[in-house]
Write a protein that binds this DNA or RNA. Structure first.
Lengths: 199, 199
DNA sequence: GTCTATAGGGTGATAGAC
DNA sequence: GTCTATCACCCTATAGAC
């Protein structure tokens, strides 16, 4: 989806550099406030050259979404090595807490992008929705393995809790919100496990 | 803050019309994608005339935030008439669920605005943060009246849960997410009350 | 007070030299 | 394949007629 060119890209992988620079700058400035020259500069590529790799700005947005999906895949691949599903979810929370300073300044890298794209009327919002669905599915699988009958609803609650605490952390500009709310989310997981073992 | 002009506004309250039109159009299109002529048209005011009431686009953003604060105040004033604090929170959730179709299409009117403003570096994001704090404070007061020792943290969780379900409802374009997650949030309130009465 | 016409600045996109 | 120069457009904001 991201790099299916007939093996023409010479060296340096400028396309990847542009895609990942786009993801970063979009996160910090938002899509609308970001100019192509901002991205070119961040990727250290001459402005006019951008159009050789991406014909439109929207294609850069699409590439940025792909970049987020790749990041998600890499993260869940790592988490899947943890034996217990509940610990995988806790490790995911720990990762979010680690990113608290970034979240306080710019919000969730993917959530804020998806929110911005949802104001538009083109199909880009659906591409973003697919990434969110991928996260929810992975979380749902953990709840299923934990033996929860309401795995899907629980997964929605779990991801919603994260998105919500990211919004508050960002709006209040307070990384400690992420710490405190992340802890409460982890405690909720403990409650679920206790109920399961107790019943 | 919104209308402190020396009683010059002739008739019709064009200033208020512009402020509330701005809030609505910003919600649907986002601030950056909204032009002054979009707002002028929505408020049924000639484009050039906008500058008589607001010298810059940023002042319209500020007015829109003020409009959201007024909406919040009106809502909590109504809710305060309900005898039991837990029922006030439940009524708040019910109101959010009622707005589910709008949330599915454009997200939380205030949360998405605050998120967009947080990408900027001017002080407008702090004005938005004040409104979020006002909501959290009101919710916290209800938890305090319910006898919760962790009223502040609970209020953050409550508002975060709403913001999160609004994000998912919006990104997934599915109003039913708000229904299902709203119900779970209400059930959590029931759990708290049961624990309190049981202990 | 109200509105029209327009200036001024900046951005996405293209043509074509190297 | 790589990059520079530039076009064409749109939007904010202003000057000034009514």
């Amino acid at each position: 989806m991201t790099d299916s060119k007939p093996a023409k890209t010479a060296r340096g992988g400028k396309r990847e550099r542009l895609a990942s620079a786009a993801a970063q700058v979009f996160h910090q400035q938002g899509v609308e406030r970001t100019t192509l020259s901002d991205i070119a500069e961040a990727a250290d590529v001459p402005l006019g050259n951008v159009y050789y790799y991406f014909k439109t700005k929207d294609q850069l947005v699409e590439a940025a979404i792909g970049s987020h999906l790749a990041t998600l895949r890499a993260a869940t691949d790592q988490l899947d090595r943890i034996p217990e599903p509940v610990d995988r979810l806790k490790a995911l929370i720990a990762g979010w807490i680690e990113q608290r300073e970034t979240a306080a300044r710019y919000g969730c890298p993917f959530g804020t992008l998806a929110t911005e794209l949802d104001k538009r009327e083109d199909g880009l919002d659906q591409t973003a929705a697919d990434v969110m669905r991928a996260l929810i599915s992975w979380v749902e699988e953990q709840f299923t393995q934990m033996g929860r009958a309401d795995a899907h609803e629980s997964a929605l609650s779990f991801v919603a809790a994260y998105q919500g605490m990211a919004v508050l952390t960002n709006v209040l500009r307070d990384p400690e919100v992420m710490v405190g709310q992340g802890r409460r989310l982890a405690e909720w997981l403990d409650t679920l496990e206790r109920d399961r073992l107790g019943a």
